[in-house]
Amino acid sequence: MPISGVIITSTPEHLDEVLSELQQFPQVEVHGADEKANIVAVLDTTSSEEMETIIDRINKDEKVLNVGVTYLNTEDEAEQMAQGEKLPKPFGFRKPQ
């Protein structure tokens, strides 16, 4: 279950809207925001794949300028793999075809 720390950058006039939209995601914990509309949040997902999807969805929001990952911990997935589980996209790896 990966955990990441992110900065979600919006614009001051859209900050409140973005904050309320983020509440829709059970995987997102908001820790604060500054006057320039930088939001500090923690994402807690069940897989790297889900992590990627959520970041992508937030990023696609018109009112969001950027999602920057500052921290990523995937030690659970490594453990799962070590125990023989097969994960579709561990650590966000995408195998080139």
């Binding site: 955990i3 720390g5 820790h31 500054d34 500090v40 923690v42 807690d44 921290y71």
Partner: peptide
């Protein structure tokens, strides 16, 4: 997990000087 989540939040906040 809590420790890691707090570390994650601190990491993000440190970029903003928050």
């Amino acid at each position: 997990r809590d420790f890691i989540k707090k570390a994650a939040a601190l990491s993000a906040a440190s970029y903003l000087g928050m």
